[in-house]
Amino acid sequence: MRDEAQNRRKFLKACAAAGAAGLWVMLIPRPGAAQRVHHIDPTLQTPDWMDHYYVYVIDLSRCIGCGNCVRACKRENKVSEKFFRTWVERYQVTDEDHVYVESPNGGHDGFTGNVAHGKVTRAFFVPKMCNHCRNTPCTQVCPVHASYQSPEGVILVDKKRCIGCAYCVQACPYGSRFIDPRTHTADKCTWCYHRITRGLLPACVTVCPTNTRRFGDLKDEDDDIRDLIHGARASVLKPDLNTEPFCFYLGFDRAIR
């Protein structure tokens, strides 16, 4: 019995010593550990990455609801049928403050008729899309890091990583994500990342006939968009959620949700 007890004590001592040693080992900084943190190592940058931070501005008082942007987006990004990366909503507010919102086929074919009951006192179109938030709810919930924010502030989805769990679709408060039925992965607006990195404008901005949609680079000192953002009384969608969207709206209305 005594031998056994002594052995057990020895064993426990050895275990404690090994555990303590293990703790000390964990304190030694390991190479590569810093990289795993979300900060980006400046030495790893491709040259132009840190020179841009993109921003999108929508002037609601200019939109005529033609649906050009929706069609252009479909063509440019080959968006799945019945789904939209960007869409246009029509708001009709009556004198009794009832708000009627519709977006037939995402505004792809324009708007016809009148859905409101009662006397419409104001009506306007609201183009919507991914807001490319700085504080993104959607990327935070992605279990496989398929959804992420590029260094320029664009939220992208890596379709090869995406497992189609649709957490992000639920997490997005703006409804700008959907599961593409062809690939069974999440899909969303990329601000036409392949265009903007070539110095082009996103497809929707390119085709807008009334200059409702504007796109710019906050880090470009000559870009008019800086003055617009800082000078105009721009609002964002659902500011109470603290998502810090980088898609600003001019001529906002209290009825917009």
């Binding site: 979300h38 260094p151 992208l156 036409c192 392949h194 265009r195 085709v207």
Partner: peptide, 23 residues
């Protein structure tokens, strides 16, 4: 993990897509 907590290759894939609508 090259640029952040995501697959860095995807950024290049996304960039390589060809624009369709002409400016």
């Amino acid at each position: 993990g090259k640029w952040g907590a995501y697959r860095a290759g995807h950024i290049d894939e996304e960039r390589e897509r060809q624009p369709l609508i002409s400016a």
